[in-house]
Amino acid sequence: MIKVERSFLVALPRDELVAYLEDFGHTESWDPGTVRCVRTDDGPLRPGATWHNTSRFRGRTTELEYRLVGSETDRLEFVGENKTVTAHDELLFEARSPAVTRLTYRASLRFKGLARLAAPFLRAEFERLADEVVERLPAAVAERGAA
């Protein structure tokens, strides 16, 4: 299993940041691996909501089905899966001021079958991607606010 974690400040009130990130379709804006992410169900965003995610990693494209499994005022949890990997994304929110939120982003990948053998060789790449999230997510939020 590969696990990465980053904590950083985002210039947005906690409730607004939670509402923005609760729509996993926004990963197109802030996740460096996501090429496309489309909601596959209807209705309000709540646990059980689903998305079809297309990601590119090391030149290869992969498809995952994601679902929102937990939604609270200070925590979101998503699980994505396909035949070779289960991805788990947890986002923790702490209001630092009325306009600033500390976001802790945790991602883990559990490879299945023979793909498990590649995990130790992929850790550095996932660490790099997590660093890019720290750069891209605050910028995506700022662009959202300017639109």
Score class of each variant (00 low, 15 high):
Ile2Trp: 04
Glu22Met: 05
Asn82Cys: 10
Val79Glu: 13
Glu28Leu: 02
Glu143Val: 10
Leu68Tyr: 06
Leu91Pro: 01
Gly48Asn: 02
Thr40Cys: 04
Ala87Phe: 04
Val18Asn: 03
Ile2Gly: 09
Asp41Ala: 11
Glu16Val: 00
Leu21Glu: 06
Thr73Pro: 09
Thr62Asp: 14
Leu76Arg: 08
Arg128Phe: 13
Pro47Met: 07
Ala130His: 07
Leu91Arg: 09
Val18Ala: 06
Arg67Met: 10
Ala19Trp: 02
His88Val: 08
Arg36Thr: 08
Phe8Glu: 00
Ala124Lys: 13
Glu81Met: 11
Glu81Val: 13
Val79Met: 09
Leu9Pro: 02
Arg96Ile: 01
Glu77Tyr: 08
Glu143Arg: 15
Lys3Leu: 06
Asp89His: 05
Leu129Tyr: 07
Val18His: 05
Ala139Asp: 14
Arg96Asn: 01
Phe24Glu: 03
Arg14Ala: 07
Ala118Arg: 12
Asp23Phe: 09
Pro120His: 09
Arg46His: 05
Thr84Gly: 06
Tyr66Ser: 08
Glu127Asn: 12
Cys37Asn: 10
Lys83His: 08
Arg116Tyr: 07
Leu92Glu: 08
Gly113Ser: 01
Arg102Cys: 01
Leu92Phe: 04
Glu94His: 07
Asp131Lys: 12
Ser55Thr: 14
Glu28Tyr: 01
Cys37Phe: 01
Gly59Arg: 14
His88Lys: 11
Val4His: 06
Ala95Gln: 04
Gly145Arg: 15
Thr50Gly: 03
Lys3Gly: 01
Gly25Ser: 09
Phe121Thr: 15
Asn53Trp: 02
Arg56Val: 14
Ala140Val: 13
Val10Tyr: 05
Asp131Met: 08
Asn82His: 07
Glu77Ile: 11
Glu143Ser: 15
Pro47His: 08
Phe57Cys: 12
Ser55Gln: 15
Arg116Ala: 14
Ser55Leu: 15
Thr73Ser: 12
Val35Lys: 07
Val79Tyr: 05
Pro47Asp: 06
Ala124Cys: 04
Pro98Val: 00
Arg102Val: 00
Ala87Trp: 09
Ala140Thr: 11
Glu94Asn: 06
Phe24Pro: 03
Glu63Ile: 12
Asp89Met: 02
Phe126Arg: 13
Lys3Cys: 01
Gly145Gln: 15
Pro13Lys: 11
Thr86Phe: 04
Glu90Pro: 00
Phe78Leu: 12
His26Ala: 02
Leu64Asn: 12
Thr61Asn: 14
Asp131Gln: 11
Asp74Gly: 13
Phe78Tyr: 14
His52Asp: 08
Lys83Val: 11
Ala49Lys: 02
Phe111Ile: 03
Cys37Leu: 04
Arg67Gln: 12
Ala142Lys: 14
Val10Asn: 01
Cys37His: 03
Ala115Glu: 06
Leu68Ile: 07
Trp51Asn: 06
Thr34Leu: 04
Thr34Ser: 03
Arg75Cys: 12
Ala118Trp: 10
Val38Ile: 13
Thr86Ala: 05
Asp31Ile: 02
Thr62Pro: 03
Arg56His: 10
Lys3Ala: 03
Arg67Asp: 07
Pro32Leu: 07
Asp42Gln: 13
